[in-house]
Design a protein around this nucleic acid. Structure first.
Lengths: 342, 342
DNA sequence: GTCGCAATCCAAAGCGCTTATGATACTGTT
DNA sequence: AACAGTATCATAAGCGCTTTGGATTGCGAC
């Protein structure tokens, strides 16, 4: 069923039917109702494609997901983030189109989306330090919002980020106050901006308290369970092992726990652990009493809010780039305790 | 840059340019090259929307992701599956459009996608037993492939599934051969078809060996780490605890491990564990020697193959519904061993 | 020369929608 | 009775592409 057929079946012109359905005032309420009823009955929905052609809008938003070709790694955050954003899109009549892209082809994809008029705006995932994508996107002239930030980029751009630096600073403070001095860090790849900021926060606290940064206690890598296990195992075997470990994600923290327990130690007593918790739906950090002490910030909420920012941007292109900084809460769980006495 | 502008700048008609770019034979190679060069230079790409309107194709495939509104749970598999499918789409010039949907609204979404002509086909995620969606989709007349199957549906339909029953049967056999007799099962929600089949496999082996099904040893729930922990903790406290546990996913298995270790037991010695492993990129099951003995089947591969099936279906609508059954490999790791002697 | 036939290219219609511009009928005013 | 003003609906152009049905040219064959 298309507009033409619908209008014919009603004995009205396409114009009138279109206007009736889109809420224009030059149609009497009586006919509007008649039209709406018929549309319902015939299950008529305007073709997005035709509508888009006519209006110049795509009514779609692109998510470009970089998949590092080295490790074929998909960020586990992704599902929940998308779920949050998708909610907002659905409510606002936008579609979400997804491109899984080798990180090298990203620029091409952006240009393609723009020149094919496939989307009204895009969400940039996984920003790295000095990320060149931002300049490129400014060049292309497609509205976008970055999930995260890119240190080293001077130009203003729209972003939504967790205050990673502050979160890790607070976490380190918390450990310091418990008496810990040998605090380790198992971070995400530090070309990623969020990981870089977390390290900054970590270093802020250590430096602020006169603790030198010990390279044998700071590690970074793709955030897998394995990473947590390997690095922790290695560090626990050091002559002076850490008494506390800060970890960049729950998944990694699970590996950390495995290594600690395999070493016959007790988490929260022999070794304290704080992790960042993205509040993923399938990895809840316990119930009332969190298993892990964690800096917590829901990535699903982030998705919701970011989508709203982007839609606002699209609907009002003159808007200056919006930014939003979310604070993580520090949730005290069972994985932290005072420094063990030796 | 659009077709009109491009053709004007070349001094050719839109027809010729279109034909040159789309590989039609009624264009000389000389002009074709000239056109291609210019298109490259001006970074011209045909508007998907206009192309779709003209051809009646959408060049897009829809993924409808049901999010159970109760738990707001996103299946962790999802990211990797999508990544696999996305690869195939990209190679074939299709776009992927994603709808995150409250499971109740699913039918509406399908009808919408169809009547708005938004997609050429769809992928059905998370089939349940007797899933009504299949009948609905047959009704609607939109090509689709189901990721998984739906027990109880008589009508033929296209699907790609792992042989879950056989996988769990083999896993149970393996445990049985190691001497285990009290074998527990921590399954996904058994309205989900895959979970139902896994239980069948589990029961096949037990029944086949004259072991009665003990309800206190079989559990099901949303597949979170917590589920594994809670159920395992509970079962280990039974008068006759299980000597082996079969688990439906790596995430759950991590919780199982936590409970086992918290009880002061050693995995693989005191309690054996076999899990299903979807080969998620961020949850690799160890390196050469898997941590967990597991039934393994890459969900990313499944995505790739399923996408290919769907595209074939779209390009040849007369094709009978294809089906594909993937076998999981049984990988022996460190989490299983002979029954402990008491 | 004329014709047939390839080889090239083009004009224009049409995909399903929106929207600028017009047309018509109905009010109430004077 | 004539008119402006308003409410209601229609005609037709246009969005960027594909594709049908020609049109034009060049060339060898008769």
């Amino acid at each position: 069923m298309n507009l033409k057929q619908l209008s014919e079946s009603l004995g009205l012109s396409q114009t009138t039917v279109s206007r009736a359905l889109n809420g224009y005032p030059e149609v009497s309420e009586a006919t509007r109702n008649r039209v709406k009823l018929a549309a319902e009955q015939f299950n008529y929905r305007p073709s997005t494609r035709a509508k888009g052609l006519a209006t110049g809008q795509a009514l779609a938003i692109g998510h470009v997901i970089p998949v590092s070709n080295k490790h074929e790694m998909v960020n586990p955050i992704f599902g929940d983030f998308i779920a949050g954003a998708g909610e907002t899109y659905a409510r606002n009549g936008y579609e979400m189109i997804l491109s899984i892209v080798d990180d090298q082809d990203e620029y091409d994809i952006y240009r393609g989306l723009k020149s094919r008029n496939a989307v009204d705006g895009i969400v940039v995932h996984g920003p790295r330090m000095n990320d060149e994508r931002i300049a490129l996107l400014n060049d292309i002239g497609l509205p976008y919002v970055v999930h995260g930030r890119a240190s080293g980029i001077a130009a203003p751009y729209a972003w939504l980020d967790v205050n990673n630096r502050r979160a890790f600073q607070r976490a380190a403070d918390f450990l310091f106050d418990l008496g810990h001095r040998r605090i380790a860090l198992i971070n995400g790849l530090e070309v990623m901006d969020f990981a870089h900021r977390r390290r900054m926060g970590y270093e802020d606290t250590l430096r602020g308290n006169g603790i030198p940064i010990d390279p044998s206690l700071t590690h970074a890598g793709e955030m897998t369970e394995e990473l947590g296990f390997d690095k922790t195992k290695h560090m626990l075997a050091l002559p002076a092992p850490p008494t506390a470990i800060m970890v960049s994600s729950m998944i990694v923290a699970l590996g950390v726990r495995r290594a600690i327990e395999e070493a016959g130690l007790v988490i929260g007593r022999d070794v304290s652990v704080i992790t960042h918790d993205d509040a993923l739906s399938y990895l809840r950090n316990g119930g009332d009493v969190p298993i892990f002490t964690a800096t917590r910030s829901s990535v699903r909420d982030a998705g919701r809010q970011l989508a709203e920012m982007l839609i606002a941007q699209i609907q009002n292109p003159l808007l200056a780039p919006q930014t939003q900084l979310l604070e993580a809460e520090l949730m005290v769980g069972q994985s932290t305790g005072p420094t063990p006495v030796t």
